[in-house]
C-alpha cells in the first residue's frame, strides 16, 4: 500500500474529504475524533497490514507520520 492510499482510507472511514489528511495531521485534532476513531484506525491497520495495534501504541502516536512509523516503512510501497 502507498502512504497516500492509507490517508484516503482513513479519511473515507472517518467521513473526511479525500485529500484532507497528510503526514503532519494530528490524529486527536481530526474533525469529529472520538473513542470510535481509534477503533477505526485499528481496523484499517489490522485489515491492511496484519498488525494489531494496542491501546498503549496510541499513547505515542500523535500524527499520521507516527502511525506510519508504527506500521513500519517496509510495509509501504
Amino acid at each position: 500500500m502507498k502512504k497516500q492510499e492509507l490517508y484516503s482510507l482513513i479519511a473515507d472511514e472517518l467521513n473526511l474529504e479525500d485529500g484532507s489528511l497528510n503526514e503532519t495531521s494530528v490524529l486527536f485534532d481530526i474533525q469529529g475524533w472520538d473513542s470510535m476513531s481509534i477503533l477505526v484506525i485499528m481496523t484499517i491497520v489490522d485489515e491492511n497490514f496484519g498488525i494489531t495495534l494496542s491501546a498503549d501504541d496510541f499513547t505515542t502516536i500523535d500524527t499520521i507520520k507516527d502511525l506510519e512509523e508504527k506500521i513500519g516503512a517496509e510495509n509501504f510501497k
Partner: peptide
C-alpha cells in the same frame, strides 16, 4: 473501560 484495549483483545 479501556475501549481500544478491549477492542484489541476482541479482534485478536
Amino acid at each position: 473501560m479501556n475501549g481500544p484495549s478491549i477492542f484489541n483483545f476482541t479482534i485478536t
